[in-house]
């Protein structure tokens, strides 16, 4: 294949990765932006979404599309409910103290991981693609499902942006983010907002997992890499910034996709890490970060 088509293919692969990464990182960024909680267990909610997707699609033999639709509705909902109770039972008890929440979420990480291992076993679990068709380009055919993943991620991002900037819930979330105490003075139940945000963040990671699991496989250790990449994205983009998360996910996803195809995945990770280091040195608040911004 010539260089041009090869670059195009690598870009498409990078866009798929960026789309999924953007959803995961957005959840992480939302939780930190509003609650100031660094959720180390975020990758495990992603993993849980993938494993639940495999489990739920197993209920529907026959048409894989039906199982997939059920998984993308039920999976993130279940993960969101679990995260809601994690917030109420653990994070609220430590009063969202920054150090305590890091330790607590590390604990949650291992609990979720080991529970999944005990319940579903150590094997990697494949999930059927809900549909299979190729988009024919002049040089190669490309998976229609992967393009759907990109479109779904864009739609979800737009939906999140709309909720945050145009709805009453979004206004309440932003007010809570900017000044928790003053928000309470206007009747905002801050703890309730935190629970909703934490569940939403975990739910977004789970949606990303359900979207990606027909391409990769569900496995109890799959949460680690996306967590690291998400931290890279939110540090580069600026913690709490939706715009920054989007731009950084595109940078990391595309560079990862293209460099991995032309050189090696290891070099791609080195470039990502170098980018983070440069941002931390020259613009520690991130490319689009400010004191407190969604």
């Amino acid at each position: 294949m010539d260089f041009g088509p090869f670059l195009f293919l690598a870009t498409l692969e990078g866009l798929v990765q960026a789309a999924v990464l953007c959803l995961i990182a957005l959840g992480l960024s939302l939780v930190f932006g509003v609650m100031r909680v660094v959720n180390v267990a975020h990758g495990e909610f992603y993993m849980l979404g993938a494993v639940l997707a495999w489990w739920i699609t197993g209920w529907f033999a026959g048409n894989p599309a039906i199982g997939f639709v059920a998984a993308i509705i039920i999976g993130p909902l279940l993960v969101g409910v679990i995260a809601y109770f994690v917030e109420r039972l653990i994070l609220r008890k430590v009063e969202y103290d920054p150090e305590a929440t890091i330790v607590a979420t590390i604990g949650i990480l291992y609990i979720v991981q080991q529970l999944v291992l005990i319940t579903f076993g150590p094997d990697a679990r494949p999930v059927d693609t809900p549909f299979y068709f190729l988009i024919e380009f002049p040089w190669f055919g490309y998976s229609g499902y992967k393009l759907l993943v990109i479109c779904a991620a864009i739609m979800l991002l737009l939906a999140v942006w709309y909720v945050i900037t145009r709805t009453r819930l979004g206004l309440v979330m932003r007010a809570t983010q900017y000044d928790r105490e003053t928000a309470q003075n206007f009747g905002i139940a801050v703890n309730q907002v935190y629970a909703i945000v934490f569940a939403t963040g975990a739910g977004l990671a789970a949606v990303a997992a359900v979207l990606i699991v027909p391409i990769q496989q569900a496995h109890y250790l799959m949460g680690r890499d996306p967590l690291l990449l998400s931290f890279i994205v939110v540090i580069i983009g600026g913690l709490g910034s939706i715009r920054g998360t989007l731009v950084a996910a595109l940078i990391i996803g595309l560079s990862d996709g293209i460099i991995s195809v032309f050189f090696s995945p290891t070099l791609a990770k080195m470039v990502s890490t170098l980018l983070v280091a440069m941002v931390l040195v020259f613009k520690p608040e991130g490319l689009f970060g400010s004191r407190s911004q969604l």
Partner: peptide, 23 residues
């Protein structure tokens, strides 16, 4: 009205008033 005003500085005037009207 707290000391130092404690406005939501990043929100617009209208959005600050909307917060006031939540109840």
């Amino acid at each position: 009205v707290p000391q130092g005003r404690r406005l939501f500085a990043e929100l617009t005037v209208k959005e600050n008033l909307q917060i006031g009207m939540l109840i």
